[in-house]
Simulated scan of single mutants.
Amino acid sequence: MPERTSDSWEYSLSLPNDLRAVPISRRTLRLILTMYGLIHLVDTAELIASELVSNAVLHTKGPAALRVSWSDGVLRIGAWDANPEPPDPPHDVANLTGAENGRGTALVRACADVWGWHPLSRFGRRGKYVWCDLPVA
C-alpha cells in the first residue's frame, strides 16, 4: 500500500473506564497507521498509546479518549481523561528497571520528540489531554 502521509488526518476513539480499552486502543492505532503507510511507527506508537490510555483508565473514574493525528509530517498521539490534575512528572527511564508503576510518562518522554499536557473539557467533563509527537524518521 502506498504511503499517504502528505494529507492531514485525525481519529478519536472514545473509551470507557475499562482496562480492555488498552488493547483496543493498540489495535485501532495499528490499523490506522497501517492504512496510512506508517507501519514503521507502529511499535513505538503502540507503546506510547498503551501508557497514555493505561494512565487514563487506571488513575481516573471517568471515560477516556485516544486521539491520533497526522499533520505536516508529525504524528501526534494523545489521551484525554477525566482527571484535571497534571500527570506525574517523568522519572529517569534508567532508574525504572523492574518497576511496575511510575514509568508511563518516562517512556513517553523517552520515545517522543516532545510531549506535554493541558487542561481540557470534553462533553462537559473537565479533564486533561496528555500528548506527544513522534519522530517520523
Rank of each mutant, 00 (worst) to 15 (best):
R122T: 02
N101D: 11
W115N: 06
G127P: 07
I77D: 07
D88K: 12
T105F: 11
V93H: 01
D133A: 13
V74D: 12
P63E: 14
G124S: 09
V93A: 05
P84I: 12
A112C: 15
G62C: 01
C111Y: 14
P87L: 12
K128G: 06
G73Q: 12
S121P: 00
L96M: 10
R125L: 11
N95M: 04
L75C: 14
E100P: 00
W70Q: 09
A99K: 05
G124E: 05
L120C: 10
P89E: 15
G127D: 04
V74S: 14
R122G: 02
W117H: 12
H118I: 00
V108H: 09
V93S: 01
P84C: 09
G78C: 03
P87T: 10
H59W: 10
P89A: 14
R67G: 00
L58C: 11
N101L: 12
H91C: 05
K61S: 12
V68H: 02
S69P: 02
A94H: 06
P119N: 02
L134K: 03
V68T: 14
A106V: 02
N101P: 00
K61D: 14
P87R: 11
G73T: 07
V93G: 00
K128L: 04
E100G: 15
H118D: 04
W80V: 07
E85W: 02
V68N: 03
G124H: 09
P84D: 09
T105V: 06
G62Q: 05
V108S: 08
N95T: 15
V130M: 10
A110G: 04
F123Q: 13
A65F: 00
V130I: 15
V68S: 08
P87I: 10
L96N: 05
K61M: 09
A56V: 06
F123R: 14
V108M: 12
E85P: 00
V130Q: 08
W117V: 07
A106P: 01
V114H: 15
R126M: 07
K61C: 04
H91A: 15
A64Y: 01
N95S: 15
G127Y: 04
K61H: 12
P90N: 06
T60K: 00
G102S: 06
R67C: 03
D72N: 15
C111T: 08
T97Q: 09
G127K: 06
